[in-house]
Design a protein around this nucleic acid. Sequence first.
DNA 1: CTCCATTGGTCTGATTCCAGACTTTTAGAA
DNA 2: TTCTAAAAGTCTGGAATCAGACCAATGGAG
Lengths: 240, 240
Amino acid sequence: MTEPSPVSLLRPVRSGNAFEETVERLLQAIKLGVVAHGAKMPPERELAAQLGISRVTLREAIRALQESGYLDVRRGRYGGAFVVYRPPDPRHGDLRRAVNEMGPSELDDALTFRMAVECGAAQVLADRDLTPAQSATLRRRLADVNDAGPSDYRRLDTAFHLCIAELTGSPLLAAACADARLRVTDLLNAIPILSFNIQHSAAQHAAIVDAILDGDPALARQAVAEHLEGTAALLRGFLA
Amino acid sequence: MTEPSPVSLLRPVRSGNAFEETVERLLQAIKLGVVAHGAKMPPERELAAQLGISRVTLREAIRALQESGYLDVRRGRYGGAFVVYRPPDPRHGDLRRAVNEMGPSELDDALTFRMAVECGAAQVLADRDLTPAQSATLRRRLADVNDAGPSDYRRLDTAFHLCIAELTGSPLLAAACADARLRVTDLLNAIPILSFNIQHSAAQHAAIVDAILDGDPALARQAVAEHLEGTAALLRGFLA
DNA sequence: CTCCATTGGTCTGATTCCAGACTTTTAGAA
DNA sequence: TTCTAAAAGTCTGGAATCAGACCAATGGAG
């Protein structure tokens, strides 16, 4: 018998500091467009409860984001924390810089993880009988991306991808896919949105939806794999 | 444009209490056999560092496990925390009880998550060119399970499954698979180990390994799906 | 037998994080 | 104009957690 591998199940229990974690989370929610530009974040008390932290800690995080110009906080009734941030148009060199800010191993980790969980989610969903409402939601998200203007494209693309995981009804899986997406957000945001790429993606998105609605797990998995492989190859190409 | 879904990206930042989380982790490491019966856990200082918590908190967790009879702690040089726990042989009714202790939605979540990440991992791995060493490791783990006695079966089965994720080289993916496995450990431990099931599993394990080594992602994905579907169906059948 | 490296056991002060009560501001409703 | 509800802002005391220094036991090496 061989050593059964010292499985790194003894990985960190807590990711780190609650404050920093919270800032990161909120920032990602903003960058991913979970809360759109101009929209209001949930009230502090509610948000603190959702994030499982105290209001004090949440407020520190919000203040940090306010001071960095991501949020505009207004008090009084109908007040709240409003998203002010707009993703800047990527400029030449941004992508290379973004890719290299992340180490090669970290990039590889993120891309591999994303490939696995998103393919897994698509496969699982294709294996289910979707209710008409679920099918409609999926088609709706697809249409949303296709109708999106440049400023909304990333946000709706994200919503489409996460929608697949969420429709499986598994919070764990949805969280994993959200996490996977998080880890590449900054990179995706640094890729210029070219109409050629959008059309290519649109075709792939359609293929994914078709495979899922047809109940073909193998095809769904393959469609997602091909879709993600494009991005992955592009990013890996920028590694110094 | 539809609401882009209030993606629950605003899920809890911290899983809860550091102490409880740590107890849970160590317990799973013991139940999963990451640290075998009679073996020593890493020294407190080292373990605390790995888990990213303070020694104080770790010690509280260790004491809890000691008082529950899972660990035997000895001081002095060559001392340490030794695993004393042995999984009890499952008795009739244990499985039904275990399944119903977990809510139906939680069970479904865990099974769906596991299906997605393990299929994803196998697919990713099959898409890679494995080094001879990696192929050997995979074959080794397969052989280990096949040679296992009843008392070691679960542990080596776990090692085999996790090995696939770990060979992808993605810590995130490995962690996700470990997490997925954790959530069904208690259930698996309540299933009697029957020679019929073992033989069935052995054939499926072999199919998985073959598909991976052949570099056939579609087949690998399908083989894992079939393997897990068996367990999933069995467990779902016990839902009250 | 003595020494000593390694490991668990204990203590202390600082920091983070929390729960909850209370205050202030604000925009709309009455 | 006044009142009110909903929101952010403030304060306090306590619990959880940490970092690090120090103590105590133990078993092998010399």
